[in-house]
Structure formats: C-alpha cells, structure tokens
C-alpha cells in the first residue's frame, strides 16, 4: 500500500509565486511514500520543499530545469506496476493520446505520467493508463493564461491502484477518485 504523489509543472518563481496554500496544508511530510514529478520545478527551493514532503522523489527534466541534471525519462516500479515518467514537451502534439501511447510503448510501462500541458487528464489506452497530473501551482501553460491547480495521488497495491485527484476550484479542493487494475 504505497502512496505515490504525482505532480509537476510548478514553475516557481518564474510563472507563479508559490503552491496554493490549500495544497500545502494537505501535503504534509511523511504522508506519502514517493513522489513522481513531471518536471519544470525550476528552482532548487521547490525541489527542497518537495523533498521535505517525501525524501524519495523522482524528477524528470522539463523545459526550464537547466541547473540540475535530471534525466529525461524515468521508469519506477511500484508494487507490481511500472510507472513511466516524462515531461511531455517533446511529445508531438502535446498531450496527444497516440503520441503518448508511443512513449508508453517505448518505455514499456503500465502507467505513463506526463505533464507540460498543465491540464489534468487521464486516458485509458489499450489496458494502460496515461495520466497527466496538471500543474500543481496553476501556472500559465504554452497556450493558456491560467490553469486549474491540480495533482494526483496513487494508492498502489500490487497490480491495483486507486487514483485520487485534487483540484483547486474556487478556492476549494475538489477530490475525485478512480480505480485502475493492470490486466495480465
């Protein structure tokens, strides 16, 4: 029963000043077991902040993470599920399901987590799951001036996962959940 936090596209301080306070209030240290971050954290301070939430953090390189030599992709096995992590700015077109599918096949993972669009999306694609946790800070994306802050949380139990998503709408945190099971 591992809790995995997925978030990304923070863009602090270049596009926004900080994570929303409501998110900070619920992201307390010690609650999650891992963090999968899609990138564009931009500064060391945010990375350190994420580290305080959980020391086990995996980050991939986004467009504006230059100072740190993050890898471009990462594969992490949690439970019996393989998670793939990529930022997604090299996926043409951005957030496209087939192109993401290509990446998923290339990395050979069960769940692909990508970002860059700053929009929360999930697709079930050929028995696999494609997840975009959106931007945790609601930073402006390459095509929209403001986005809804969101992130998601995986509760992994061998081949099953419960996915919770948290979105900040009108100052309130809205939560949703869904189930995913890997088919053999």
């Amino acid at each position: 029963m591992v809790l995995v936090l997925c978030l990304g596209d923070l863009h602090v301080p270049y596009r926004t000043s900080d994570l929303p306070q409501q998110f900070k209030d619920i992201l307390l240290p010690g609650k999650v077991g891992q963090i999968l971050c899609t990138g564009d954290i931009c500064t060391k301070e945010m990375y350190d902040y994420l580290k305080t939430i959980c020391t086990n953090i995996h980050v991939v390189k986004g467009q504006f993470d230059e100072d740190h030599a993050y890898p471009e992709t990462k594969v992490v096995k949690i439970g019996d599920l393989k998670f793939g992590l990529v930022h997604g700015h090299t996926v043409i077109p951005w957030g496209d399901i087939s192109s993401l599918g290509m990446v998923q096949r290339q990395m050979d993972v069960d769940v692909l987590i990508s970002g860059h669009t700053h929009e929360f999306r999930t697709y079930a694609y050929e028995d696999k799951l494609l997840v975009n946790p959106g931007s945790a800070t609601g930073a402006y994306s390459s095509k929209e001036a403001s986005t809804t802050p969101s992130f998601c949380l995986f509760d992994v139990d061998s081949t099953k996962a419960t996915i919770y998503t948290y979105k900040l709408k009108d100052g309130e945190v809205k939560k949703e959940k869904m189930f995913f099971e890997k088919r053999a």
């Binding site: 609650k31 077991g33 891992q34 949380l153 959940k177």
Partner: peptide, 30 residues
C-alpha cells in the same frame, strides 16, 4: 476512466493524519 467525485467527508489518503507510505517499501525497485 471512470471518475467518482469525492465529497469532503469521504476518505482520501491525505486528509487522514497518518503517515503511511514508507519510503523504504520493499516493493519499490527503481
């Protein structure tokens, strides 16, 4: 993807103040 909305009273892992998710879970392999 079938999403169900949770109300504030429903369970979600972050609302309960328990530290789960051990960083050193055995299943995790990088």
């Amino acid at each position: 993807c079938e999403w169900t909305t949770l109300s504030s009273s429903d369970f979600d892992p972050l609302s309960v103040s328990q530290a789960c998710g051990d960083a050193s879970a055995d299943n995790v392999v990088v």
